[in-house]
Each structure stands twice: as C-alpha cells, then as structure tokens.
C-alpha cells in the first residue's frame, strides 16, 4: 500500500505544479549553454552532485520523521540557503500544493502532519506519515526531480521524450550517490556550489519569452 502511495506522490501527474518551474534551466537552454543531450545529462548530474541534490535531497531525508521544531528549522535553513528568489518561491509553492493535494487524498494522515513549507520538507514529512520507508521516500523525491527536469527539457530543447529519459537514465550513478549522501547528512551538510545556475536563474524573469515561471 505504501509503495502505491509513494508512486502516486512522486508521479509527474501529481498536481503540485512542479512542471511550471525550471529553476534556471530555461535560461541556460536559451543561451545555448545546455543544447545537446550530453549537455543535459551533465546538467542533471551536476545538479544532483553540487546543487539541488546537495541541498533539497538531504533536507527531505532530514524531514522524514522529524519533530515540528526540526521541520521548522529545516524550512528556515532552506529559506536562507535558497538565495535566488524564484527557486525559493517555487520550492514553497510546490510544497504548499503538495500538502493541499495530499490533504485531498489522505485527509486523516495529513491532518496530523506538522507544519512544513518547502517541497523537500513536505515530501519527507509526508513520506513518513504515509508509512513509506525513509530511503524509498528520498529515492522517490530524487527520481521525481530528475524525471521532472528531464521532461522540462523536452519543452526547452530539440529533444524527444525518449532522449530525455535516456539522459535521466545516464544519471543513475549521480542519483544513487545523491540519495546515499542525503541519507547520511546532517543539517550542517547542506552545501551547494552552483554559481553558473544561480546567475542564470536570476536572469530568467528577464527572458523575452518564457515557458517556465523560474
């Protein structure tokens, strides 16, 4: 039963609105800095290793089964670490949408769920509340991000669905390393190094024609 819930929760069709955000990928594709399947694979694996995967994945792992005070601290940490306003707002919007959708489906479970704001903390807390194992919860969270970004790329690049899925599949090693690191992380371990994407994500609102909100 918990596996079914997990698959549902992390499915791209689950109505969180995550499909509306690229968090800077749109700028990089517009500039031609992510142009080929090899570029996309490198981008995805790079973010799993140095960016999103080093911040949001451990936050999800730490939120799993955490008490309300710890969840609040994690949300504050993510508020501060996400310097670029667009991705910061996207994270809280998707978190709110995730909670709203989960409330609709599993009201008894979610009614007791401590307050959370960001996508990572909400997903982790929900995974625990729905009886999903911690490692599976983080794996689903990472998979959801990876496939979501690969799908976004099909709207931004000359790239078919099959090629996008192949790019994601080539990131298996990075994804597994990301999950492993997340499961062993403490709040002090949330670090990133993505200056190239940070600049790109900041410039996304100024693009002449935008497909994504971030």
């Amino acid at each position: 039963m918990s596996l079914l819930r997990l698959l549902q929760l992390s499915d791209s069709a689950f109505p969180t609105g995550a499909y509306a955000f690229s968090d800077g990928l749109e700028t990089l594709t517009m500039r031609g800095e992510v142009r080929t399947p090899a570029d996309l694979t490198a981008f995805l694996a790079g973010q799993l290793t140095h960016g999103w995967g080093a911040q949001d994945a451990p936050a999800c792992a730490l939120a799993w089964g955490a008490d309300p005070a710890t969840l609040a601290e994690l949300d504050e940490l993510l508020d501060d670490l996400k310097l670029v306003p667009g991705p910061r707002a996207a994270s809280t919007r998707v978190g709110a949408n995730l909670r709203r959708a989960a409330t609709h489906l599993w009201p008894d479970v979610v009614s007791d769920l401590p307050a959370t704001r960001h996508h990572a903390t909400t997903f982790g807390a929900l995974g625990h509340a729905l009886g999903m194992p911690r490692a599976d919860t983080v794996t689903a969270f990472v998979s959801g991000w990876l496939l979501g970004r690969a799908t976004s790329a099909t709207r931004l690049m000359k790239l078919g669905g099959l090629d996008a899925q192949r790019c994601a599949a080539h990131c298996d090693g990075a994804a597994q390393a990301c999950v492993h690191a997340a499961l062993h992380a403490t709040p002090d371990d949330l670090f990133t190094f993505t200056p190239h994407l940070d600049v790109a994500a900041s410039e996304q609102p100024g693009l002449d024609a935008r497909l994504f909100q971030t």
Partner: peptide, 8 residues
C-alpha cells in the same frame, strides 16, 4: 561534474 553547465 564541476565543469557541468549550471555548476561552474
């Protein structure tokens, strides 16, 4: 991956 687009 340090040279990946989005990282450095």
């Amino acid at each position: 991956l340090t040279r990946a687009p989005g990282v450095w």
